[in-house]
């Protein structure tokens, strides 16, 4: 897989316009299988916008975006199927339990739901599986959102400030999940202020021009 020069995510000359202003332009990025690409930049530099472009939610104003050498616009459904997107919101319903959330998420993404228990366990939420989300603390809610990554496996992870509100052990749990994902050939793109432990990450700084 590593021998394939087009494998993974590749963006060339990407530009993004929002609300009449150019958020970023002439942006090149590359993330091959096993890569962690960390997005950095000041507030408003366009980290979240870039993640939404990479997810296919927002069409770039210019440039091309490929996965394994094929433009993601060619087959948007295939791109949606290969990505897991964790936004800065947790997407939790107050009255649903964590297990219900993850089972729904797995079904929504066409996965079986057999990974739900393991996903909860990986983020230390096994004991809270039957707890409605409204009882959770900020950090627990964030972990529940992150557990989605494992409940419905996808090769491309797009994470927007994944460590927000997490304590040190939880950040370690995320780092372990990211490391396992990368070892299995997955790609991670994360906008974050924190370093992931032991991560030989590539860094892309926005707004530096």
């Amino acid at each position: 897989m590593d021998s394939n020069p087009t494998a993974g995510l590749k963006g060339r000359a990407l530009a993004c316009r929002r609300g009449g202003r150019t958020v970023f332009q002439a942006l090149d990025l590359r993330a091959t299988p096993g890569d962690l690409l960390v997005l950095r930049g000041a507030n408003g530099a366009g980290k979240s916008s870039l993640l939404r472009v990479l997810a296919g939610l927002l069409a770039p104003a210019a440039g091309t975006l490929d996965w394994d050498g094929e433009a993601i616009g060619e087959d948007p459904a295939a791109h949606r199927a290969r990505l897991a997107f964790i936004a800065h919101t947790d997407a939790l319903k107050p009255t649903l339990t964590l297990a219900e959330h993850l089972h729904f998420h797995a079904a929504l993404r066409g996965a079986s739901g057999t990974n739900v228990a393991a996903a909860l366990d990986a983020f230390g939420l096994a004991a809270l599986a039957d707890t409605p989300a409204r009882f959770l603390s900020q950090g627990q809610r964030r972990r529940a959102a992150l557990a989605r990554l494992l409940a419905a496996p996808a090769p491309l992870w797009l994470l927007d400030e994944p460590t927000n509100g997490l304590d040190a052990p939880s950040v370690d749990a995320l780092a372990r999940a990211v490391a396992r994902h990368r070892a299995a050939g997955g790609v991670v793109v994360a906008a974050t202020h924190l370093e992931f432990a032991g991560a030989s990450a590539r860094t892309l700084t926005l707004g530096a021009a």
Binding site: A55, G56, L57, R80, L83, F85, A87, H88, T89, D90, A91, L92, K93, H105, L108, R109
Partner: peptide, 10 residues
């Protein structure tokens, strides 16, 4: 609550 992103990306 951000669920719309997950629906659109399903």
């Amino acid at each position: 609550d951000g669920s719309l992103d997950q629906l659109v990306l399903a």
